[in-house]
Every structure is written in structure tokens, then in C-alpha cells.
Amino acid sequence: MSFTWKFTAREIAEKPELLAPGHRMCSGCGAAIVHRLVLKAVRGPTIVTHPTGCVEVTTAIYPYTSWRVPWVHTAFETAAANAAGIEAAFKALRRRGRLKYDHVDVMAFAGDGGTYDIGIQALSGALERGHDFLYVLYDNEAYMNTGIQRSGGTPLGAWTTTTPAGTKIPGKPEPRKPIEDIVVAHGVPYVATASPAHWMDLVVKARKGLEAKGPAFLHVIAPCPRGWRYESSKTIELSRLAVETCVFPLWECVDGEHKLSAPSKAIALKPDLKKPVVEYLKAQGRFSHLFTPEFERVIDEIQRVVDKRWYLLLKKCSV
């Protein structure tokens, strides 16, 4: 794909906020930053849809709305089906001369619960059918809206209210599902990971996803002060650390070909820059139970899983 869009920080800052202030996301919410930045990448007429979740319940509380674009929420497992229906309608209306727009961008935002778990069937179906839409997974790694329960996206060892830091089982026993690889396996034109800390990379990738012809998937890490147990000012710090420790490497996959993005490529070229996961873990209360003689082995296991996935990614990226 040829990509020519360029912008300066000022141009981005001068773009309208399509998610208006006055929303009720928590102080320091990572998902809020992700939404603001992704929405700076819109090209023209746009419709946004959400499944049930944190962002849905905090941006539209009747009679108030933060959405300056047409917006619809239907249910929890439906993000991709919502987008598919909207896209199908535009296709039909355009073909039948009933649409005043040349093109309308369709964006679905969903959290980890709505993507890895309950929404994966609708997502898989919509990807296979090839609907032209951008799916943004804002990943806060647990069901935060209902009060921090584990999802398929919760990492190994993390405390949640359904994977408590017990005396026998220290947090979540399983690593997270590699959702981005599952999406890549569908053969869609554009898949990428992003972190709000690298805001320009995120905005560019959102735009590339919109420009891709067919389904595009953007997996964005979205730290959650409440659920990850850290002070609200550290949200960007953690989304940067996730990249620096290779817990959440940044890459894109265009038409099946993987390529590391600049922040992760720098680490690949100079492995000394790769920080140990313990720096990421110790910054978050959800991993604090692992810093005991009894459960230290879990930290080693987390490091092993991260290293293995990083190694496999480097191979995919031919580094």
C-alpha cells in the first residue's frame, strides 16, 4: 500500500476532538487517550461503533453523549457485526443511489473482553467476509467495566478479581491469547500493534488501517490505573515500558508481511536496549504478589514467555 499522509503535532492538535470532553472515563484512563488519538486520523465522513464496555458506558450516558460522529452501541459480542451491518448498508445505499457520500469510514472500537472472548466469533466472521472497516482493540487486559475480572487478554500472573493472588494460585495461570496473530491468520490486508506512548506511530497506523481496502485491525495497549493498580499519572510511562520490555512490541503486518515499527526495531537492532520485564511488572500492583520468594518463579516464566514471543516475532520480521 502506498501511504502519503503526513502531519505535524500542531496539525493534529488543531484537529477537532471527535470524542468530546465531559466523558466519564476514569482519571488517567489509557483507553481515553487511545480513542482521542485514533480519532485524529479520520479521513472524512465516519461512523463509530462500540460493544458494551468501559468506553461505551462512559461516553454515552443518556441524555449526554461525547460522540461528535454518528455512534451506535448494540451489545457486548457485536462490535464487528455492528460494523459489518453499517458497511453493508453503505455499500447497498451507494450502489442504489441513496447515499450522498462517496465513502464513509466505519470504525469499531472494542476492549479485550469484547474482542478476545465474547466478540471473537463476530470478529472472525467479519474478517473472513472482508468488510471494509477498521477494528481498534483497546486492550486494558481485563473486564475493567465490571470491576477487573480476567479475560483471554489478561497476562500470565496478573491479579484480577477472578484470578486472585491466592496462596496456592498466584494470579492468572495462563498467558494471554495471541489475538493479533489470530487476526493475521485471517489474511486481512492490515494488522498492527500500537502504544499511545508512541502517539505518532499510533495515529499513522490508524490512518493506514482506514486506508486499507478491507478489514484492518489495530491492537493498542491501554493501561488502566484502577485495574493494573498504579498511580494515574503513570499511564503513558507504562505503555512505553510495555514496548521497551518487549511485553508489547510494535509492528505492522501489511498483506501478510510483518515489519517491526521504529521503537521495537531499535531494540531488535540493539538488544542491550531491551529492558527486563521485572521493570514493567514492579510498576503495577496487579503483579505485586509475584515479588515474594514463593512466587518469583512466575516472573521468570513471564520473562520466558515474553522472550519466546519476541524471538518468534523477530523471525517473522526477518530480523
Partner: peptide
């Protein structure tokens, strides 16, 4: 005026007055 504060604000409460 690097504008990082604008980019990273969850609430759109850091405004660039052009």
C-alpha cells in the same frame, strides 16, 4: 510547546489555542 501534554491528555482538557 511540544504538545505532548495535548496528545496524552485522556480528557481533551489540554487545548492548543492556534
Amino acid at each position: 510547546k511540544c504538545l505532548l501534554c495535548h496528545m496524552y491528555c485522556p480528557d481533551g482538557a489540554v487545548i492548543w489555542n492556534s
